[in-house]
Design a protein around this nucleic acid. Structure first.
Lengths: 185, 185, 185, 185
DNA sequence: CATGAATGAGTATTCATTCAT
DNA sequence: AATGAATGAATACTCATTCAT
C-alpha cells in the first residue's frame, strides 16, 4: 500500500517535531517518537537507517519551510514597503502558526552535531531572488545577503521566541517601520 | 569535615559547557560531564540536586555574561556611532572568544524545558540603562527595548552562528554601518 | 515479530524468589535478578513495567499457592482429625518443599510498601469452604475465619521459620494433637 | 558530653525503626536514616561499624522488647485464665502501641541475612519461666516451649498484622477463650 | 512492510563508606 | 565525637538498535 507508507512516515516526522517542541532535543527518544506516532520503534528503521540520519533528514526537510511559507505571502505587485511588511509579519505569523516546526528548526540549527550536516542557505534562494529583484529595481538597499537575512529575519525570530507580552503587536509594527526606514531607498 | 572544593564546582561548570559545545544538549550526560571534569558522577550531586537543576543554575549564571562582557568594551566618552560599533563588534568578539558559553547559552535558551526556568531579561539591564542614556541625550533613536535588543544583537548573533566565510569582516563592518544608519539621529 | 518467551518470564519469577530467599528483599536488585535468570536487565522491563509492579505481581501470584497445595492434600472422606492433621502437616511440608516461595511470601507480606497492594484473603477461600463444611457437619468447632486461619496456620508457620531442631517432628505431632483437642467436637 | 551521645544513638535507632515501618527493609538507607535522625551519615559510623552490624545490633536489642512489655502486664496473683488473657491481649496491645518496633522485628526476623545472627529464644526466657511455673503448678497444660510460644503468640501476631476489621475485638476475645480452653487444665 | 521481543550499553541517581577537618 | 565532602560501585530504568516472525 502506497498511501499507508507515506502516512506512516509523515506521522513519524510530526511526532518527532511535536516531541521536540514539548521536551527538547534530549527528550526525543526513538521509543517516545514511535509511541507518539503510533508505530513500532522498529518501523522507524524502515524509513531511516539511524536516529542521526532521521534527525538530519527531517531537519533538512523543514529547515526552509518558513521561506516557502513566506513566498506564499508576497505578491509581485507589492512595493518595497509592502514587501518588508509582508516578510516580517509573515515570518512572525509563521512562528505562531507553525510553532512546532519553528521550535524544531531553531533547536536543530543550534545543535553542533546536526547543524553542519544541513546546508543552511540552500532553499531560501527564492526569497533572495525576490529581494535581489527589488534591489536591482532600486527599491531595496543593496547589502550582502547574510546581512539582509540577518536584519530581516533574526530580530523577528527574537521577538517570536520571547514570551508573548501584551504590546507585542505594537513592537512588531515598530520593527516593520524601522526595517523599512533602514532598507528602503 | 572536608571543605567544599570551589575549584571542583568550577570544573563541573566548564565541563558541562565544553561538552554542550562539542556534542549538543543530548550529548551532555552526567557521566561524560564527570569524566570531563575529573570528578566522580556522585560528586556532581554534592553541588546540584539534579541534572535539571544543574542545567538551570549554570544557564542562569552564564545567560548574561555576554552583557557584562559588553559593558567592559564601552566607554562613557564614546559617541553614538562608537557605541554601536563597540556593541556589535564586541558581541561578535564575545561569540568568538567565549565560543563555548555562547553556544551553551544559545542552545539552552531554545530548549523548551529549560528556557522558561530562567529569567531572560534580568541582567542585561545595565546595557539597557546605558542605551537609555544615549536615547535621552538624543544620540540614539527611541524604540522599545525588545526591538533595540532584537536589532542590535540578533543579527550579529546570526552572523556568528553561521560558518565563518572569508568576507565575514566586511559583513560585520556593513552591519555596523547599517545599524548606525538606523539607530543614530 | 519475535514471540514472547514464556519460559523467560518464568525464569525471572524463579530468579526473584530464589534471590529473596538467599539475600532478602534488599538483596534482590534488578541486575542480580537478571543475572540469576540469565536475561538482560532490560528484558525484565518487557514483562514488568517497574520493579514494584513486578514484586506486586509475583507476590500476588504466589501468595496463595500454599492453599492450593493444601487442597491437594485433603480428601473428602477424611474425618475431622485427619483433616487437621493433613492441613497442619501439609502446611509444614509445603514450607519445606517450597522453601523459596514460602520465604518469599513471608517476607513480602511483611513489607509495608508491598503488602497493601495485594489482597491477602482472596484465594484461600477454597480451604475455608472446606472447613465450613466440617463445621456445618459438627465435626469442627465453630469460630471466626480469621481465628481459624490464625490457629491452624500461624503456629506451624512459626515452627517452620525457626531453625530445624532435632525434635521438630515430635513438636509437629504435639501441635497436631493440641489443635485437634482444640478444634474437634 | 555523655547525654548527647546516647541521645544521638537513640535517635538513630528510632529513625531506623520508623523508616522501616514506612518503607520496608529496602527503604532504609544510611543517608535516609541520618536525615530522619538529624545527624550526619558519618555519625552513624561512630556508633556502628557497618550497616549490617547496625541492623543486627538494633534488631537484637528490640527483638525481645515485646516480652519485657508482657512481663509488665502479668501479676503473680493471676490465675491461669487471667494469665492467658493478659498475655494474648498484652501482645496485641504491644503490636498497636509499638507498631514501629513490632513491624521492624517482624521484618527483620524474616530476613534471611539478618535472622540467623540473632538468637531468637534468648530473652523470652522470663516469659517461659513464668509459664513453666504455671505448668509446674498444674494450671497450664504441659507442652514443648516452641509449641507454647507458637500457640500463644503467633495467632495474635497474625490478627495484629491483618488490616483491622470492625469486629477485631470480638475475634480477640474469641481467641483468648479458645486458648484458655486449650491450655488450661 | 511492519512489528513486539530482546539486549548491551547507557541514563540519572543513590548507595555504603571513608576522608579531612 | 561529629561532620559535610567525596567517591566507586551499585541502583532502577531507558536507550538506540537488531532480530525473528
Amino acid at each position: 500500500m502506497r498511501t499507508k507508507d507515506i502516512d506512516k512516515q509523515h506521522r513519524i516526522k510530526e511526532a518527532l517535531i511535536r516531541l521536540i517542541l514539548r521536551e527538547g532535543m534530549s527528550g526525543a527518544s526513538i521509543s517516545k517518537i514511535a509511541r507518539e506516532a503510533g508505530v513500532s520503534p522498529a518501523t522507524i528503521y524502515v524509513y531511516y537507517s539511524s536516529k542521526d540520519e532521521m534527525l538530519a533528514d527531517i531537519f533538512q526537510e523543514y529547515a526552509h519551510q518558513s521561506y516557502h511559507y513566506l513566498m506564499g505571502r508576497v505578491r509581485p505587485e507589492m512595493d518595497g514597503a509592502e514587501l518588508i511588511d509582508a516578510l516580517v509579519r509573515g515570518y512572525f505569523s509563521y512562528s505562531v502558526e507553525h510553532e512546532e516546526v519553528f521550535s524544531f528548526v531553531e533547536q536543530c540549527s543550534r545543535c553542533p552535531t546536526l547543524a553542519p550536516q544541513v546546508s543552511q542557505e540552500e532553499c531560501c534562494c527564492e526569497v533572495f531572488d525576490l529581494l535581489h529583484q527589488y534591489q536591482d529595481r532600486g527599491q531595496v538597499r543593496r547589502c550582502s545577503d547574510p546581512n539582509l537575512a540577518a536584519l530581516l529575519f533574526s530580530p523577528v525570530r527574537f521577538l517570536a521566541m520571547n514570551q508573548p507580552g501584551p504590546d507585542l503587536d505594537a513592537q512588531l509594527t515598530e520593527l516593520v517601520e524601522m526595517l523599512q526606514d533602514l532598507l528602503l531607498l
